[in-house]
């Protein structure tokens, strides 16, 4: 067991589906056009923000999907060069762009659809200049990238940007190995779900339902 198991709790009862966490992430990490490391998904009807059911019995909520920083990641095991790896001290799953050979095995192995992005071309920025944190690693063409839990911010003792960006205060960050942490208390007091539990990855992102 790693010393820490950093992760997130997302309260789907508070989430209003505003996409601000996704955009904050995009700005913070200077993510290229058309790429999202974190996406707000509508659990309801067939299109964004639509509900399922018939009025007045409608149902809709949101989940935000990014790398789940699994305790038992499928991706780190399959990477032939160890470019994606779990950091032992805090359990964060990282990606080393300089090592990645672009074989996309990790994308094939990850059960969480679309959280890993391969830069199919030179990353473009529609506003014409770089944004975000200077410490965030620069993107590289033909390598795989994903949410790294803002490792550059963690190094400075700060929380990931999406936590700060959440307007509804639906996102929490902390160490699941510390029973006194806010996230541990939340999942011990509230009903939660994890995604794709049947794949045995034990994701470190919990959704309060």
């Amino acid at each position: 067991m790693s010393a820490q198991r950093l992760g997130m709790v997302v309260d789907t009862k508070r989430c209003v589906g505003c996409h601000t966490c996704a955009v904050t992430c995009k700005i913070e990490n200077n993510i290229g056009d058309g790429v999202f490391w974190n996406r707000t998904m509508t659990v309801g009807g067939d299109s964004i923000d639509s509900a399922s059911g018939t009025y007045p019995n409608l149902s809709k909520h949101y989940i935000t999907l990014a790398c789940q920083h699994c305790e038992n990641p499928a991706c780190t095991r399959v990477c032939p060069v160890g470019a994606t790896y779990k950091r032992e001290e805090d359990g964060v799953v990282l990606q080393d762009y300089d090592k990645c050979i672009g074989c996309r095995m990790c994308i094939a192995a990850c059960p969480y659809t679309g959280v890993r992005n391969f830069n199919w071309e030179e990353p473009q920025h529609s506003i014409g200049y770089d944004v975000g944190d200077a410490d965030a690693p620069a993107h590289q063409k033909h390598t795989v990238e994903k949410c790294m839990m803002c490792a550059h911010r963690l190094a400075r003792g700060e929380e990931p940007a999406c936590i700060l960006g959440c307007l509804a205060k639906a996102r929490y960050f902390g160490d699941f190995n510390d029973p006194q942490s806010e996230v541990s208390k939340l999942i011990s007091s509230r009903t939660y779900k994890q995604l794709q539990v049947e794949d045995g990855t034990n994701p470190s992102v919990y959704f309060l339902v």
Binding site: K99, I101, M105
Partner: peptide, 29 residues
């Protein structure tokens, strides 16, 4: 066919330098 599929064929030497032996792709190579 594997080589043309790679995003970074110039980094093929990483397979030898940083070999991760738990990867089925590494086994296959």
């Amino acid at each position: 066919f594997v080589v043309v599929d790679l995003g970074g064929p110039l980094r093929v030497w990483h397979l030898f330098a940083y070999a991760n032996l738990t990867s089925p792709l590494m086994w296959d190579i």
